[in-house]
Nucleic acid binder design. Sequence first.
DNA 1: GCGAATTGTTTTAAGTTTAAAATATATAGA
DNA 2: TCTATATATTTTAAACTTAAAACAATTCGC
Lengths: 166, 166
Amino acid sequence: MSRDDYESGVGRDDGMELRVWLRLITCHNLMDNNVRQKLHQDYETTLPRFDVLAQLHREGAPLTMGELSRRLMVTNGNVTGLIDRLAREGLVERRPAPDDRRRQLVAMTDQGKAFFEAMAGEHQDWIAGMTGDLNAGELRELFRLLGRLKQSILTTHDEDNSEAAE
Amino acid sequence: MSRDDYESGVGRDDGMELRVWLRLITCHNLMDNNVRQKLHQDYETTLPRFDVLAQLHREGAPLTMGELSRRLMVTNGNVTGLIDRLAREGLVERRPAPDDRRRQLVAMTDQGKAFFEAMAGEHQDWIAGMTGDLNAGELRELFRLLGRLKQSILTTHDEDNSEAAE
DNA sequence: GCGAATTGTTTTAAGTTTAAAATATATAGA
DNA sequence: TCTATATATTTTAAACTTAAAACAATTCGC
């Protein structure tokens, strides 16, 4: 089932840029939906919550709301709601930052750390499973080209902030 | 600003699969957020609505709710709400399918077609701009590798439906 | 120090999204 | 036919997400 997807019906003369973009969306959606569903079924949690815990776990220290917002590439208000729910579950806790009373530090609880570590290994297996057909060389080359794309996006797409100087 | 992103803090010994996945998420988020913001600023519309119109425009004919759901890779209920809002804006209209009274056909109105076509060219320019640093060979290779990834995902991630046979 | 601009977070309103249940119609088998 | 099963869509409740406004605290320039 679901042979069709985002790419279906792309005209044969669309630019290569658009075709790359549509295929990237397809891959993202397929993997994203798969991970989301497994987190729901196996751990009764959601991908955004997993992502917050992953950032905190990798940092190994509390992060501010704003830093989480930047790393997850979502708005501040979004993070507020996510942390509310994670705190209600007992997986993280808020602490006032000692040096700046505007800031909130978000720290994982022991329970949150244990919960994330229980998921993390399986999560990596899911990803490895889905990328299993690609050999090491293909993975490296894909990684390299995505790095090129990332740099291209970051250097190109900032021509709109032209009124910042006044 | 926003030098940090989803990838920051990846341990140096994480598998290459995970690193590819994180970088793919980063590229997707960067481009997705950029397109979303431009659609909002320039056309006062949203990416999901653009996506629905794009599918209808490419098909060149009405699509059922279910077919839209499959192509956009979102749930049926999601499409119901999207079509409600697009219909309220006068950009699409619902029609009962002639042969099957369960089905709803969704057709673009003339207004919807004109609106999409006004956006489509600029949309392609946005994508081309963001991918501008990659030459034709890199784009082709990225397209090919994403195709390999897509096939890998589709062939691998279906080992969970083991109770369907009884 | 004081006031203005900046930075960090939350709130608000609207839209998006999912999973699950409900509804309606069609199809297949006894 | 009649009933069970399957398919197509909508509804529901909760969560996610954004943009914009509001609020709070800091920093900067005088």
